[in-house]
Design a protein around this nucleic acid. Sequence first.
DNA 1: CTGAAAGCGCTTACAG
DNA 2: CTGAAAGCGCTTACAG
Lengths: 334, 334
Amino acid sequence: MNPTIKDVALKANVSIATVSRVLNNLTGYSDQTRLKVNRAIQELGYQPNAIARGLINKRTQTIGVMFPDVSSAFSYDLLQGIDKFAHDHNYSVMVCNTDQNGIRTLKYLQLLREKQVDGIIFSSGVLKKEYYDVLDSMNIPVVLVSTQTDFANVPYVKVDDYQAVYDSVSYLISKGHSKIAMISGTEGDPIAGTPRVEGYLKALEDHGLPFESRYLVYGDFSFQDGCTGMETLLEQAPEVTAVFAASDEAAIGALSTVTRLGMNVPGDFSIMGYDDIRMAQMVSPPLTTVRQPLFDIGRIASEKLITMIETGEVVQSAIIAHSIVERQTVRNLT
Amino acid sequence: MNPTIKDVALKANVSIATVSRVLNNLTGYSDQTRLKVNRAIQELGYQPNAIARGLINKRTQTIGVMFPDVSSAFSYDLLQGIDKFAHDHNYSVMVCNTDQNGIRTLKYLQLLREKQVDGIIFSSGVLKKEYYDVLDSMNIPVVLVSTQTDFANVPYVKVDDYQAVYDSVSYLISKGHSKIAMISGTEGDPIAGTPRVEGYLKALEDHGLPFESRYLVYGDFSFQDGCTGMETLLEQAPEVTAVFAASDEAAIGALSTVTRLGMNVPGDFSIMGYDDIRMAQMVSPPLTTVRQPLFDIGRIASEKLITMIETGEVVQSAIIAHSIVERQTVRNLT
DNA sequence: CTGAAAGCGCTTACAG
DNA sequence: CTGAAAGCGCTTACAG
């Protein structure tokens, strides 16, 4: 058995209250006592039990992170940012991968409650009413990442999806493209779906370009859907000179399809992605994309959550700046 | 405040002992009592407190996962496998990203101890003596993933690195290549470094091919080092027709360099990787590689750890089968 | 079938 | 400066 505070007290010839005091750097003991206690701690190799502490303090120093999403490239960068800040501030993180499965999500939420996490980061999925309800009943801080909600005043940290796409498509237009297609993500997705399509539409409109419905195809952000989306586009709109994809994975799918068909990127065809996952710089040619700084987003979310936990104050949501990173998949037609 | 077992007892007019019994599905109460208690639980929306439970049971139902490694593509697949099995068996997982930093690793180890995790999975990094010592003093089960150790009888689950490379290089030879270079990982790395180089050397030898020291370059498994390694190779050994890289990331780096220089893969040059990360199938052309089933490896490690936790028995290490995945970066010269 | 009591390893008033 | 005691929310002998 590991030694407890009691063993330390015994060995140092003081009460457990005193041991607790020096352990927690409180005041109220002589230097001599401190020395005695510390020596006993050393000799026994004592380590505090965070569980016992958690029970009494009603704080576990752990936060839960839910990933309803499944895309590894995306989630892991986020997780790194979250994990880094949290650990640097003495919190551990518990991960829950729900694979978009509602039952699982609810089950994990309950688990996090039983484990008494101090707060939850809910990432990159739609916050359904039923999730919100249990989150609400848990009475702990929550912050949303790469998603947002109308339900209540729950802070989020994300990029402005609409604006990011608007800027991207405008960029494509500035390079002389006028027949621009889009491979959208999930149709109707209120976060990463609809707003991005609207950004595309608006950019077209503001530049006096007509929208052709056959220029727009839907997928689910995946590589696979990027491939098939591109095939569809090539068939039904061969005049298109550039495509904007709602995720880098889909863009890379488009790139691979176009390449496989013997076309040259950007010579014959231009492609632009969304996210700037690590993979974007590894494909050939490197992908031009609009960047969401995922690591930073994770870090900031972690910071906000911990602030809420420790101060009890409500924090502001944050829109994180996106940026266009020019690499080599867009041809300048001007 | 959330309701406790005491509130339930009060409401149901029984003792807390009885509530505890029905909560844990023990025997020793009438149907009527069960009904009463369950009704009270319902009405109060009571949820057990796993922290209090953990204190008394000396089981927290959580496992810690250490990732000394930094490569996202690699770690996340592993994590998914671990997480899936663990959650399906009522364990949560706590992640610790140590970035190969020794101080951090030690700090996290201590954290996991304080949090009283029931077991630890140590992944993809060298298990230094100092880590082993604290692990040992914690007195909880540990399993190693994609690494192994001589220190003691700590079970691991991994692929046979030596054999995987031996098979890969033999494959390249069977396709008619005789001037085969290798972009190795970290020189001297006892797990993913040296054994892989030895597999390469041995395959050459067994097929009567001489080893040229200028055919072998070292890196750190990264995309970047794959790029520069390839450049070096092209310069000092232009006659080479194929390269085997010790990681998919490095292979993809080589691919991008070769492509950038105007060569065609596999027409002018063949490339083979190691891992089969998701990205391998997304590059153009899709990468031929030797697969380690990371998700499965994670799952199995999780399973072994939980078995050890619950039965107290020591489990056997497992060598997981690798397999060559033929895609389109290796030309058949025969 | 049921409850009173002790105890898990801590922290925190309270009293001296 | 220090200790005895209560209590965090549970589980588990023990007794009836």
